[in-house]
Design a protein around this nucleic acid. Sequence first.
DNA 1: CTTATCTGTAACATTTATAATAACAGTAAG
DNA 2: CTTACTGTTATTATAAATGTTACAGATAAG
Lengths: 146, 146
Amino acid sequence: MIRVNSEFTIAVHSLVLLAYRPDRTATSEMIAANVCTHPARVRKVLSCLKKTGYVATREGSGGGYTLACDPQEVTLAEVYRVTSIGSIKPSWCSGDEDEDCLVACNMAEVMDGIFSEAENRMLTFLEQVKVTDVLDRLRLVHAAKP
Amino acid sequence: MIRVNSEFTIAVHSLVLLAYRPDRTATSEMIAANVCTHPARVRKVLSCLKKTGYVATREGSGGGYTLACDPQEVTLAEVYRVTSIGSIKPSWCSGDEDEDCLVACNMAEVMDGIFSEAENRMLTFLEQVKVTDVLDRLRLVHAAKP
DNA sequence: CTTATCTGTAACATTTATAATAACAGTAAG
DNA sequence: CTTACTGTTATTATAAATGTTACAGATAAG
């Protein structure tokens, strides 16, 4: 059906990593190595989180990214809204507006509404998950391993 | 983030179209023209819905697809489960299991769980939407047009 | 004031996913 | 036995996601 874009994953991973590090600071290169992607991609996603004030940046030598929010307060819903809102809806649309059929000419609009409501339901769940909750889950999963 | 695959859209559109037609019957060619895709794609999706008994098929001349369920009872959640379960999760995974970092080596698993819970929330909404509800929405949208 | 290190962005290349198309075997009606 | 269907696979085309390179601008340190 739909697929959430992976910038959400990168954003969450980056915030969690920053919250995990004692100094709450890292460069795009360090984050990229941890996330397993290219530093340029990390910078693109984090420049997004900078606009909303979740991270602060410092350019130049010794610079990088610093967590600028309280990880116990920021929810995944907020991160989703910044990076990925609307992404569950498939790019492909069925029907054709110009056709003379109730079903064909309105299905795209109706499915649009349904996907949007479905996304909202997802958001009410993400609303309950804080950045620190992800850290807690990581520790839980880790402890369960042999 | 994630994107629901479009087979869900095709499946819903096909069921609604069959429910809309007085004889509740159509060929893959007719459905494909209404959906705006290739007949082979419709056949692939509908052969899926046949397995679960939502449609019946008849091969050979004069054959085609017939609605075999009560459109007031079948929900979009059931259709989603048949065609698209798991599709909101991005194919791309962050982190690396072999790394020696709590965050990097467990993030994929944790995000997996979060996507799965998010999908369940979406399903509780789709549970409430019946095939006939989609038809009602189509009529509502249509009536609102100038 | 020059060098090294970092972000911010855009452009381009590559890979992967999605959708369209073609092809043909099998089935049933006339 | 011909025509009109489904069922399914294989192939090709197109679109989207990701990776990579490149370079301008910022800042710290020497």
